[in-house]
């Protein structure tokens, strides 16, 4: 299984000289194995997708965690949407109040975007999911609602030999007493336990988090604690705060390295453009 990181910035694209190492594109990744390919989220990083990425069967699956702007803003610039010969399957969280199609149409319609969802030339198939098990090509996938404002899913993707868990926006420590020790009470544990690679929200430092509780994101410290509870092998900390510069992320890396012995898994900050082989 290969995981390509195309967007690891949170909230808003922040490309510039101070973010050129870790990257400024918002949430998007591609997971592939043999002929199977999945796109995770449609942030601005999805612009990297070109014709060469389209699988032989001309089917592309996009799994959306939720519909906050930084996870869908690149969809309008996703080239396969404008090809009649491509079948695109959009998977996203169901809601009791409105269909996935109707919620996405708020973006895919004037005045925000000139082309309406219904007008896209591709063959578009919508899948509304919740706590759901399903398969795409080689992959066995488990989606699960997690703590984040509005209907939000995390994904566990199981390939032939490895497991990747994707939780870009997640606040498992929300509450007076932070993260609860009993695994049964930890949001996201059911899809992250024993993953070979976990990509997890670490937007804030502990200091930042104190003034952003309930915004749906985690402190780096809570992310490390979550990864430890889930007994994963490798943690990628992402959804970098838009104000966080490369220099600050390097400094945070140095600080975290001082505590490296506390954790029995590898961890580092996610870098846009990198590829991991599991």
């Amino acid at each position: 299984m290969k995981v390509n990181l195309w967007g690891v910035r949170g909230s808003i694209p922040t490309t510039g000289s101070e973010t050129k190492v870790y990257g400024g594109q918002t949430s998007c990744m591609v997971v592939s194995e043999e002929d199977s390919l999945i796109v995770l989220d449609g942030g601005s990083g999805i612009q990297t997708f070109n014709d060469a990425h389209i699988p032989k069967n001309k089917r592309v699956d996009i799994l959306l965690t939720h519909l906050h702007m930084d996870h869908i803003q690149g969809l309008g610039f996703f080239k396969p949407f404008f090809r009649e010969d491509v079948e695109i399957h959009l998977w996203g969280p169901s809601s009791n109040t409105d269909s996935l199609s109707s919620r996405l149409s708020r973006y895919f319609s004037p005045p925000l975007f000139p082309v309406r969802l219904l007008e896209l030339p591709c063959k578009l198939v919508m899948h509304e999911i919740g706590n759901t098990d399903f398969n795409i090509g080689n992959f066995k996938i488990q989606s699960s609602y997690i703590i984040h404002p509005g209907p939000t899913l995390g994904y566990r993707i199981e390939g032939k030999q490895s497991v990747f868990t994707y939780l870009p926006d997640h606040e498992p420590a929300l509450g007076r007493n932070g993260m609860i020790k009993d695994h049964n009470w930890i949001s996201g544990y059911n899809i992250a336990h024993h993953a070979d690679l976990l990509y997890h929200d670490g937007q804030y430092t502990a200091t930042n988090y104190a003034t952003h509780k309930g915004w749906g994101h985690s402190s780096i410290e809570d992310t490390l604690a979550f990864a430890a509870a889930c007994e994963i092998k490798h943690l990628l900390i992402g959804h970098h705060d838009p104000s966080r510069t490369d220099a600050q992320l390097d400094e945070l890396t140095r600080e975290l390295r001082e505590d490296v012995d506390k954790y029995n898994f590898e961890f580092n900050f996610a870098i846009e453009g990198s590829e991991l082989e599991l």
Binding site: Y145, I146, I147, N184, W185, I186, S187, N190
Partner: peptide, 8 residues
């Protein structure tokens, strides 16, 4: 694991 609604 408990459902997210129960955890909240």
């Amino acid at each position: 694991a408990h459902a997210i609604e129960v955890i909240l």
